[in-house]
Design a protein around this nucleic acid. Structure first.
Lengths: 170, 170
DNA sequence: ATAAATAGTTAATTATATTAACCATTTCCG
DNA sequence: CGGAAATGGTTAATATAATTAACTATTTAT
């Protein structure tokens, strides 16, 4: 018999909710021929200040593929494929960095910008609806909580793995 | 230029965190030859009271595959495959329902129970560490928030879709 | 008594990602 | 300075995790 634990409930709920949000996203963005991942790339290229990626570090120059790979936590090869679709659709453009010729910078095309702007209101409406009824203070606390958890995962990776060391011999 | 929004920050952080947690989970459970999905099935069969599934509805009888499909939000066919692995590994057993011969009930084997119990402490340690420093009240509010969001997604699906109707013609 | 619904499975397929190898370029440092 | 290592991007082959569609068996509804 496993004990009730508010902490575990939170983690399992986060999983569940994220899953559902992704399903909704996939369904919605499928209408414009995109996946949630491709959509997230557009949000990055739109410099959406609400992305954890932009909170963790400042980015003055246009993003490149490897930074997207970092933020989405996937391989560079995968990003290449995702970007190719966006290039074909004319939502994104690529240009070479003239200080470092290995790098390719990415930005939204006019169409890309238009798409992001057009979808903004409905995304906001859904999000606001989901968290209706909570105070600003409460929301700020959630966000701090989420950010602390992320920071600990990123910075104390070794420590977290050490908790699991005992599992190796199972 | 997209405006700062605490609500959108929360949603994007939830995405990010869930992603990271899944990566950690995959890495850890890979050591015992399981995926995060298979692991979640074990937690269900262990009647973990912290699973959103058990908070939404009571389940007196042993679970069956289609209920797992509901909870994990995947197809029944997919569950069949996931279960097969767990059967092969001897972590799970299946028995026929004698009231309804279409149904197959699932339960953990002794080995399955042992595995869940053995991994419990380290899972709890990680989880506690992630949310260290927040009060019980704060955690409870957070959980209510997550549950409200999930409920709205499940119960007001039509309403949420209607927010996106305007996108169809993009 | 028959049609519809439910539970599970199988086979074929699709989606989404990964790894490994490679090229070009830049950075590090002995 | 010059060679080794690191970085950025791509390609090809592969893995994995899921889906859909079709099917069987059984139960429920009318």
């Amino acid at each position: 018999m496993i004990a009730k634990s508010i902490e575990e409930s939170i983690v399992l709920s986060i999983f569940d909710l994220s899953n559902q949000l992704k399903k909704i996203g996939d369904e919605v963005y499928q209408k414009v021929g995109l996946t949630t991942q491709q959509w997230l790339i557009l949000l990055h290229l739109a410099n959406n200040p609400n992305l954890p990626f932009f909170k963790r570090e400042e980015h003055k120059k246009a993003l490149m593929a490897s930074e997207l790979a970092d933020s989405l936590n996937v391989s560079r090869a995968n990003i290449t494929n995702l970007i190719n679709v966006l290039l074909e659709k004319g939502l994104v453009q690529q240009f070479e960095d003239n200080q470092d010729r290995r790098k390719k910078r990415l930005s939204l095309t006019k169409q890309g910008v238009a798409l992001v702007e057009k979808t903004q209101p409905s995304r906001f409406a859904v999000i606001e609806y989901l968290m209706e009824g909570f105070t600003k203070d409460e929301k700020e606390t959630f966000l701090r909580f989420l950010e602390q958890s992320m920071n600990r995962i990123i910075n104390d990776e070794e420590r977290i793995k050490s908790f699991h060391k005992m599992l190796v011999g199972v």
